[in-house]
């Protein structure tokens, strides 16, 4: 599903080279739920960006869902991303659209038939437990609800892979637990999940394989 081989990423800030990832290697199998753990600045977000081909590694190879990402042309990136759901710390909901419209928007841009929209959007909302808030605008949602709406948007296309970058970062413990439960439900349905979090307690509580990054290196891979 995912194969990361000796991947390094160095950012250039003027003449200064800042290493973000150093020789990172790991594999994620189909259906696995993997936690990427580490303090802020450990390289989690950089690694996730490489996985959905928002950036290229400075060195090493990455294969995701059978696609070699390093030589991938820009025109092929869209094809890859149609198979990946992505969730961020800020939900990135469109403020002038309702929850329903935010989720339907993704289906519309990908050319889904209009007659399928309602059923698919409400399927996704049911999974995240947000059906009753379909007509609410993002400003009317709690942070937990906004994050669940973002999760619904990520899974509405039923992608085989879900990448979640600190989805609980802005939430209190109760709300974070809700999101984690939703993620577990999604994972139970066969979706491969990579969840990045700086919350060590959350990572431990999940009881899932945890890859710990520190200073851009994998320092632990257990579970």
């Amino acid at each position: 599903m995912i194969e990361v081989h000796r991947v390094s990423k160095v950012y250039s800030v003027g003449p200064v080279k800042v290493p973000a990832l150093r020789e990172v290697s790991f594999r994620v199998s189909k259906g696995e739920f993997v936690v990427l753990s580490g303090a802020s600045g450990a390289g989690k977000t950089t690694l996730l960006r490489l996985l959905y081909r928002d950036d290229r590694p400075s060195e090493g190879d990455i294969e995701v869902l059978g696609h070699e990402l390093v030589p991938m042309r820009r025109s092929q990136v869209a094809t890859l991303r149609r198979s990946i759901g992505i969730v961020f710390q800020d939900a990135k909901l469109l403020p002038v659209r309702t929850v329903y419209e935010n989720i339907a928007f993704v289906l519309r841009v990908l050319g889904a038939p209009r007659r399928e929209l309602t059923a698919r959007v409400f399927d996704a909302l049911r999974v995240v437990g947000l059906s009753s808030r379909a007509q609410a605008y993002p400003a009317q949602l709690s942070q937990g609800e906004a994050q669940r709406a973002a999760l619904a948007r990520a899974i509405v296309r039923r992608p085989p892979l879900l990448l979640a970058d600190e989805p609980t970062g802005n939430l209190d413990d109760a709300m974070a637990a809700e999101i984690v439960d939703v993620l577990k439900d999604i994972g139970a349905g066969g979706t491969t999940i990579v969840l990045a979090t700086h919350q060590a307690r959350l990572a431990r509580a999940l009881h899932r394989r945890t890859i710990t990054l520190d200073g851009g290196r994998v320092v632990k891979d257990e579970g």
């Binding site: 990136v77 869209a78 991303r81 990908l110 296309r157």
Partner: peptide
Amino acid sequence: RHETEIMRLVGAPESAI
């Protein structure tokens, strides 16, 4: 720009963007 970002993230074809 937010719509464009979302569209690119979900793999929308360039024509739709």
